[in-house]
Amino acid sequence: MIDFSRYLSLKIGSILPVSIIDDYAYDKNLRIIGFGYNLLVSPQAKNLAILSDRFDYIKEGLGFIEIGASTRSTKAYKYFLDNDLGGLEFIGSLPGSIGGLVKMNAGMKEFEIKNTLDSVCIDGDWISIEDLDFSYRRTSINGVIFAARFKKIKGFNQKLLDLFSQMRKVQPKTLSCGSCFKNPVGDYAGRLIEAVGMKGFYINGVGFSDKHANFLVNVSRGIADYDSAIKVIELANKKVFDNFGIEMEKEVIILE
């Protein structure tokens, strides 16, 4: 059992049963929750699962670094830093598991997972990135990610850290699940949310940060709940569509 009001980064949820996956043979109905970042889980959600610690590792191969899917991004970042390897400098600013970051092709601006990725272990089979569809905050991956291999690029770029630090300064420090919506082509979700008056708008303590309009935050832990989060997300989407004709795509993952 996991108490999602403690487990999720947004600190909203109920106590639900969660299975542990320890090998490639698993119930295909199970849904991986990772470390609970950028995630909302309904009180009625079923078939939830996490990967066991067996998939928390980092090892070197010929021309690549293999990282288990349940390895934290901070651990992978430190490995690349300590071993003077480039390409993943940005993940030090992105909380979560390697599996989760690969699944959503996570990134910051033009820096994203696919740029350094070599191949992904999906349901036990290694598949080259060339045979997978990666786009802005999206992949074609449907199975469970057990590990990923990244190109071994010599030279950690320290100069990028200042850029990522500046980008983090505009992000709220309160309980958050990160960006709620993906940026529409040619525009920014935060600008649209602010333009329709939703910046700093909350329902029962959950809503869009007054520091960064696209960040879904919880400013009243213990009061905010799943239904309130869904209401505020749907309201923002409706207002943006009514005013701009844009149907925003959610970046936050909702497990109903």
Rank of each mutant, 00 (worst) to 15 (best):
N115M: 14
K103V: 12
C121Q: 10
L39S: 02
N29P: 10
Y226A: 04
D242E: 02
A229D: 00
A69R: 05
E247V: 11
Y37S: 12
G205E: 12
V170Q: 15
E249P: 14
T174P: 13
Y79F: 14
A189D: 05
S42L: 05
A106P: 15
D125V: 08
N183W: 10
P184K: 07
I113T: 08
N38S: 06
D56S: 15
D27K: 09
I58Y: 09
D225C: 03
R72W: 11
D123H: 01
A106S: 12
I145G: 14
F201I: 08
I122V: 11
Y57T: 06
T139V: 13
I12R: 01
I67R: 09
G205A: 11
L10I: 04
L161H: 04
S5A: 11
F55E: 15
I129E: 11
Y136F: 12
S19A: 15
A69F: 05
L163T: 15
V206Q: 06
R138I: 13
I33C: 11
G63M: 13
C121P: 12
G63I: 11
S5K: 05
D242L: 03
A45L: 04
S128H: 01
D131Y: 03
D187A: 15
M104E: 10
E89Y: 01
N29G: 15
S135C: 10
K182Y: 10
K199C: 09
S228H: 03
Y57I: 10
L132W: 01
D131S: 12
S165F: 14
G200M: 11
I253E: 10
S119G: 03
K78T: 11
I193C: 04
F55R: 15
K199H: 04
K169L: 13
K239G: 01
R31Y: 10
I91R: 00
L85T: 02
K238G: 00
L94F: 06
E110Y: 03
I246G: 00
P184H: 06
D118A: 15
R6A: 14
F181R: 03
N105Y: 01
L160G: 05
F241I: 00
A49L: 07
L160N: 04
K46D: 12
G86P: 06
G86Y: 00
G205L: 13
G245P: 02
N183D: 15
I91A: 04
V196E: 09
N105T: 00
V41I: 07
K75N: 07
K109C: 08
D22I: 02
V102I: 11
Y26F: 02
K239E: 01
G92T: 12
V120H: 02
V102K: 06
L81M: 08
T71D: 01
S165N: 15
I33K: 08
I15E: 13
F146N: 06
Q171S: 13
F4G: 00
A148Y: 03
C177I: 07
I2A: 05
S97L: 15
S209N: 00
V185G: 08
K239Y: 00
V18I: 12
F55C: 15
E251A: 09
V185F: 09
C121A: 09
G100Q: 09
D210L: 08
Q171H: 13
P17V: 02
C177W: 01
